[in-house]
Amino acid sequence: MKLHIIPLKPQIQRFPWQMREDKVKRVLQEALKVWSDVTPLTFTEVISQEADIVIDFARYWHGDNLPFDGPGGILAHAFFPRTHREGDIHFDYDESWTVGNELGTDLLQVAAHEFGHVLGLQHSLEPGALMSPFYSFSYPLQLSEDDKKGIQYLYGPRLQASVQIPTETNEIITSAPDSCHTDFDAVSVIRGELFFFKASYAWRIREGRLQAGYPALASRHWRGIPENIGAAYEDKKGNIWFFEGG
């Protein structure tokens, strides 16, 4: 079966002041990945070429007759396909953009929502859907069935190439470990929360309680994380370090 790929080229014009540019790029890549994981879409950042998706962080009046209103209120907006500004996504520069905590506005979740719009999705009426019109902090980031059906209606499902299964699988975990019958490879306090790691999975403990939806793939939080973590810690500057091996 032929694999049909739909390439799109995003471009970032300006960045928020709270995050390094490389971190913003990683977050936006992860936000795009939730859609490319279930469709034939692929995304490749461009700098000088003409882009299909143009991302900008702007303030108040910024040229599209949809002004931002400072902290709170309107977080971002995007323009649907086949409109006069199709592909444009604008984030309010004055929001307290953050990733992975409730103290600000989570860029990962808002970006994934706006990418849904720019790809052609309307708001969802399903509670808890990524495309719900109401922002609420929720991890891990994942699509609801309504989100998935909507994007696949527009672009079709992702076609998987055949994969060779290794003959020696004694130490390969192919599904989520049983929380009650496993040991752990690493444990660390990150952003004030307790994380346990096993192979490519993580458990998240907040205020002494395991959060719903865990264990989940650690890559939902940290793109490019090693599959077998030997140790992890957060330094005084807020950098998170992962070590693989002994």
Rank of each mutant, 00 (worst) to 15 (best):
D88I: 09
L66W: 13
L66M: 13
G72A: 04
S96T: 13
V46W: 15
G104Q: 02
L159M: 15
N65Q: 12
P7K: 10
S96P: 00
H113N: 02
D92A: 14
A216M: 13
Y60W: 09
I165L: 15
P140T: 04
E114D: 00
F137P: 00
P127G: 08
Q211G: 02
K9H: 12
L143D: 00
G100A: 04
R204L: 06
R206Y: 08
A231P: 01
V54Q: 11
R204Q: 03
E114F: 05
D106N: 08
A31G: 08
I55Y: 11
P215R: 08
F79D: 01
Y214D: 05
V187G: 10
M131N: 07
P40C: 08
T182S: 13
A161F: 07
F243G: 02
L217I: 00
I6T: 14
Q29H: 07
L159N: 11
R204M: 03
P67M: 09
G87N: 07
L125A: 14
E126N: 12
P71D: 01
L3R: 14
G73T: 08
F184W: 09
E95A: 14
I53K: 08
Q164F: 14
S96W: 12
A231H: 05
E244Y: 04
S188D: 07
G213Q: 09
A78V: 06
D146V: 15
N239W: 14
E168W: 15
Q142L: 10
G70C: 06
H113W: 06
I55E: 12
R206F: 11
G104E: 01
E50R: 15
S200Y: 00
P127Y: 09
D52I: 13
S179D: 04
R158I: 05
P215F: 03
F195T: 00
R158K: 12
F184L: 13
F195H: 12
T39H: 08
F242W: 07
I5Y: 06
L130K: 01
V34D: 05
Y93M: 07
T174E: 12
L141I: 10
P71G: 04
V38F: 02
P7Y: 09
V24P: 04
A231D: 02
Q122A: 12
G120Q: 06
T182L: 12
E145F: 15
Q109H: 09
E21M: 09
E168C: 11
A78R: 05
E86F: 13
E168G: 01
F57E: 04
G63M: 08
A216L: 11
E227K: 14
P133S: 03
D22K: 11
A216E: 03
